[in-house]
Simulated scan of single mutants.
Amino acid sequence: MKDVQSGPAEVAMPIDRVGVKNLRLPVLVRSRDNKGEVQHTVASVDLSVDLPARFKGTHMSRFIEALRAWSEELDYSSFKRLLEDVRLRLQAERAHLIFRFPYFLQRLAPETGTPALMDYQCTLLGELESGKLTFELGVDVPVMTVCPCSLAICNGGAHSQRAIVRIRTRSTGMVWIEDLIAIAEQAGSSPVYALLKREDERRVTEDAFAKPAFVEDVVRSAADELRRLEQVSWFRVEVESQESIHNHSAYAIIELDKNV
């Protein structure tokens, strides 16, 4: 049959990325704390390649075929193999891949120890070109913050809110999702929990008010911990405070490339 995609383009212009988005795929993610165990979750997947100016289009079905042929744990090595397969199937110079998925951890309430699952949104992003893989791991972590200014000017009260700590890292060695979550949670005034009894609510409130933090404090604390991780070569931390008494959010960002 005629291969229309491989024919000449009406406008001879290269395309940076062309592919498919929002594919749903069951995946396995290795756990740090339960040695040898994997977590079953579902990812939203984007796949793309570059397209030279001489081709009219790419072969979309080959992206699906590559995913169908791939059934491994989601880690650095398997990610690279999938990207290489996509690049070869599509006869491209560069291949791009994004996995977005929820990762679940059982967290214990701070006073009663009541267990409940917390979900954290994770992202794996990769680009393969000339055999070199750029691999990026990210996680979004909710925390609680208490405003230091409000606490200083009020008699026993202060406004508090939920903030989101968004961490993105590139690394030369293994980085666990759990480690990034821990870094984000320690940076805030307090972690947040899925289930709290009254004793736990009191403990969370007291702990948070004992550690007030501006959005600037949170982003600096998280960045300082990421800077200490030897295997992390680049990171970006964004903290967005969903203000409770303002009709806007406050945010701060720190990005650091250790190779520069």
Rank of each mutant, 00 (worst) to 15 (best):
Met13Ala: 01
Met13Lys: 01
Asp16Glu: 01
Leu23Glu: 02
Leu25Cys: 08
Val27Asn: 09
Val29Arg: 05
Ser31Gln: 15
Ser31Thr: 02
Asp33Ala: 01
Asn34Val: 10
Gly36Asn: 03
His40Trp: 15
Thr41Met: 08
Val42Cys: 12
Ser44Met: 12
Ser44Leu: 15
Leu47Lys: 04
Val49Ser: 05
Pro52Trp: 12
Pro52Ile: 01
Ala53Lys: 07
Arg54Phe: 15
Lys56Gln: 01
Thr58Leu: 13
Thr58Cys: 12
Ser61Gln: 05
Ser61Ile: 14
Ser61Asn: 02
Glu65Asn: 06
Leu67Gln: 04
Arg68Tyr: 08
Arg68His: 09
Trp70Met: 03
Trp70Thr: 10
Leu74Ala: 10
Leu82Thr: 06
Leu82Asp: 04
Leu82Arg: 03
Leu83Gln: 11
Glu84Trp: 12
Val86His: 11
Arg89Leu: 04
Arg89Thr: 09
Arg89Pro: 00
Leu90Ile: 00
Ala92Thr: 04
Leu97His: 11
Leu97Trp: 11
Ile98Ser: 04
Ile98Gln: 03
Phe99Asp: 08
Arg100Gln: 07
Phe101Gly: 12
Pro102Ala: 05
Phe104Glu: 13
Leu105Cys: 11
Leu105Ile: 14
Ala109His: 04
Thr112Tyr: 10
Thr112Gln: 03
Ala116Pro: 03
Met118Ala: 11
Asp119Met: 13
Tyr120Ala: 06
Leu124Tyr: 09
Glu129Ile: 09
Glu129Tyr: 14
Gly131Ser: 09
Lys132Glu: 11
Thr134Phe: 10
Leu137Tyr: 12
Gly138Val: 05
Gly138Trp: 02
Val139Asn: 09
Asp140Thr: 13
Val143His: 00
Met144Glu: 14
Val146Phe: 08
Val146Ala: 01
Cys147Leu: 06
Pro148Ala: 03
Ala152Ser: 12
Ala152Lys: 14
Ile153Glu: 08
Gly157Pro: 13
Ala158Trp: 01
Ala158Ile: 12
His159Tyr: 04
Arg162Cys: 00
Ala163Asn: 02
Ile167His: 11
Ile167Cys: 06
Arg168Asp: 05
Met174Glu: 13
Trp176Phe: 12
Ala184Leu: 01
Glu185Val: 02
Ala187Ile: 13
Gly188Ser: 03
Val192Arg: 09
Leu195Phe: 03
Leu195Gly: 14
Val204Gln: 07
Asp207Cys: 08
Ala208Ser: 05
Ala208Met: 10
Lys211Trp: 03
Pro212Gln: 15
Phe214Gly: 00
Arg220Gln: 07
Ser221His: 11
Ser221Tyr: 09
Glu225Cys: 10
Ser233Thr: 07
Trp234Phe: 14
Trp234Val: 11
Val239Tyr: 02
Ser249Trp: 08
Ile253Asn: 10
Asn259Met: 10
Asn259Lys: 04
